[in-house]
Structures are given as structure tokens and as C-alpha cells.
Design a protein around this nucleic acid. Sequence first.
RNA 1: CGGGGUAUAGCGCAGCCCGGUAGCGCGCGUCGUUCGGGACGACGAGGUCGUGGGUUCAAAUCCCGCUACCCCGACCA
Length: 490
Amino acid sequence: MAKVLTSREENYAQWYNDLVLKSGLAENSAVRGCMVIKPYGYAIWEKMRDELDRMFKATGHENAYFPLFIPKSFFSREANHVEGFAKECAVVTHYRLKTDEESGEIIVDPDAKLEEELIVRPTSETIIWNTYKNWVQSYRDLPILINQWANVVRWEMRTRLFLRTTEFLWQEGHTAHATRQEAEDETTQMVNIYADFAERFLGIPVLVGSKTESEKFAGAVETLTIEALMQDGKALQAGTSHFLGQNFAKAFDVQFTNREGKLDHVWATSWGMTTRMIGALIMAHSDNNGLVLPPRVAPIQVVIVPIYRGNDELPPIAEVANKMKDELTALGISVKFDDRDTQKPGWKFAEYELKGVPVRIAIGPRDIKNGTVELARRDTLEKKVMPQEGISNYIKELLEEIQENIYQKALNFRDKSTHEVDSWDELVDVLENKGGFALAYWDGTLESEDRIKETKASIRCLLKDAEPKEGRCVVSGKPSKQRVVIAKAY
RNA sequence: CGGGGUAUAGCGCAGCCCGGUAGCGCGCGUCGUUCGGGACGACGAGGUCGUGGGUUCAAAUCCCGCUACCCCGACCA
């Protein structure tokens, strides 16, 4: 087979980049740091979006849309929040272009300067809270459970396709509650939805936990996160859910009259998941032959490739293929019958492997004679000849099996790559040589955390369900109640 | 913004040191043979050598400026 991908072993970052480009998911655009998401990549995003949207709606959320632009002054309201984003936002200063008399070039019209600059949203808390202010008077107006599908812009210094782009697509949920408890429950509920989505749908096992003080979202009281492990042993923050306390309500003056007739500020949450998940999907499962897509996110779940010589051989094959396609479609499976005569079978095999299609069926003259098909699964690269009879139900079950197998494989890898460490040397050994998650006692101080950061790794999270156990901090040797998860991260 | 690198056909590159008017692979088009793992042959199309200036009889090649992109750091979903 012609080599189109750099291998993972040779250069992991290059492998990832090659894969995104060659499989047709996305490419770099004319604008620095921004990508073009191509149809195949966007189809994956649509699958993810539809499933998340379904989960959000099942838990009582509604979609709405807020503006792309946010008045600069809004960012002055919440001091902690602005600290986190102020340095990396795109700012709109003018509203008109004109043709320069001398050069004939298009220039920004200096007379068209905005009185107040507009910020291209890096996230929408400020404009949404400014709006919620008018929506809430009484506890009867609560809760507000809103999600928005949108694009946001963060002027990152270094970008990578899907993992970190200047503009990216995401959903951001913003909820308002009458009580602290209710908002905290919402925060937990949403991080659990993310974890469930990642594991059940994307086949990516995740750790659920809370961020340290220094790693949490600017403006949040607590940030819950799901952390995934990539095949190169680095962690990827895959979704976050923030308990915002009353910070934004106070900054934007969102008060309501509670059941006792007293004025109070509302309690808030926000939570988001982005197109970065496509990057996670790629790095968690794919191999040197290309993408490996879990069936539930695969835009094409089954591809049928005819093998024929001359135009006489095609019609009987097409007949079997189309019948099979109809049966599979009736079972809710997405099927492509690729009868293009512009590409050869071998070319198509390689192409669909690169694109990560979970199941491939090949039908040739031999199969027509024998009533069989050749069936290949992408996750294991196994091929076998099967009878046509009953193939549809077999494939339906096989897709489930592939979904499960991909998840188990990732889970085994994570378990194998998770190490308990009890000293600084052990920690460094894991971070430098082994990769993966290190579970270590930490004394909870910023000093110790900074020391850990000097290794280029960070505390990914404090595990949600960890039972308290006594130990000594690997940095300071001071007493510690719980192990934390440390890893190098994207 | 600091350090390093690159810019030549749609893509990947050679040519530059030592100046003489551009080449290879892939891809693309036509025709034929092929088609159960990225086929083969023949013919063909395609380049103001990033950009502005300078040196020279002559610049992809030497000199100066500019711009863009990539990699490594600080930032980050």
C-alpha cells in the first residue's frame, strides 16, 4: 500500500496532522489559525451535535441564540472573568471599508470608528447574563435552562487542527437557578452527561473530576472536567461544566424575589463541549492506516464495494448490493454503495480505511456465484467471507460489537497508562518516560502545583469519586487527603 | 512577542554553494490494457521561481528590504 500517513511511532503530531488532512476532515484556511471543516469532518460534528442536543433536551434544556459581538464594557463587570480572556480576544473597532484614493486599495475607513469597541465572543457569559437580568424577577422565572450552538473566537498563539483553532464551534449551556444546591446539581448533571456522551458515543473513557483553583474557568467557583487520555500518553480536557456561584449574577445585577419574599442573586452554571472532541476522537482510536471511527459517530457505517471486470459483471453485483443497502438502511444503518467506476477496488479499500468506515463489504463475481460477501471490520482489520443470507442482522450486531471493542481498547490503554506514584522521582519517571496519568498525593498548595507545572505537566483534576486516603504530597511531603491526576496535556 | 527554519506546477521536493533562462515524484487529461488491497504503458496539459529593489551582458541562483507560513517557548477548549 502506498504510504500516505506518517506513522504514529515516527512522529505522533505529524501523524495526527496528516490524518486530519488526508482523511478529508479539515484543512487550514487562508486565515491564520482558522480551519475549513470539510464535509466528512462536519458530518462527524453533526452526529456529535445531534446526540448532545438530544441529551440536553432530554434534561429539560432549550436552545437559543445570542449575538456574536459583545460590548467591551461587559467585560469590565466580572474582574476574574476578564483576566482569563482579555488578552486573547478579537476586537472590532470599525464598521466600514472604503477605497483609498491614492493606492486604490480597500482600507478601513478611519471615519467609521465605533464609539465602543465590540469583542468577538470568546464565550458568552457576559452578554447572556446581561440579558438574563431582564428575564428574572421572581423564583417563578427560574430555572432558566438554555443552551446555544455557536462559534467563538480565541486568539491563540499556536493552533492545531481541531485541538486548538482561533475560531471553533461549540455548545455553551448557561443556566440560572434559585438555589445554590440546584445550580451545583446542574453542574454535576452536565459533566456526567459529557462523560456519558464521551464513553458511550465516542468510545472514549474519561476521568471526571474538579479543577484546581489555578486551572478552573475564570469567573467560576468550581470547574468540573472530563479528562481523556490520548494514545501518545497526553491528556486532553474534553468538556467542562462550571458552577459559577453568584459571581455573574452579582456582576450583571441579576436578582430575584425568592419564596420568602427576599431579594437574592441567582445561582449560575455554564458548560461547554467543542469541535476539539473531533481531535480527541482521532487521537484516541485511530491507527497508522487511518481513522478508526466508533460506529455511533461514523457518517458512513457500512460501505459496499463492488468488484467487477467489464460492465457485464456489475448489474448482478449491484442488484445484491442495493438489496443489502435497503435492508441495512431499514435497520437504521447508514450505508454507502460505492459503484464509481473511476476508482479501483484496491484504491477504495484504502480510502475507506483511511476514512475509518467501521464495516466494509466487498461483493465480486465469486460472491455472486457462492451467495457470499467479503466482510472487513476497521477496528481489527479482520476479513472474512460470510453468506449473504442474514447479513443485515449480523452487521447490526457487529456494529455494536465494534463500538464496544473500540471503547474497551481505549479503556485498557488508559488503565495500563495510569500509575500510582508516591515520590517526586516516580512522578517524573511517569511524566518523562512512561506517559499517561500519574495519581499522586498533593498538599493542595499553589507552590506545590507550580512545582509540578515546571515538569510541563499539570494537575488535570481531583477525582470526583475518590475515597479520602491519607498520604504525603509528592512535592512537599506534607500530609494530603487525596491523590490527584497529573499528566502532560494538550 | 523571543529562538530556529521555509517560500520553485494542484501537492511533496530537487536545482541555489560555483549566475547562462527550470526539473523529478505524486496528482491531473486522452487512449489502450487492467479491476478480490492504493494497476501499467503511450501521449499530453500545467510554473510572472513569495514580493519590492540592487549587482550583472545575463538572476530561481549573489546582495538588501518586505511579507507570509511552519517548528520550538509563554497562553489555551
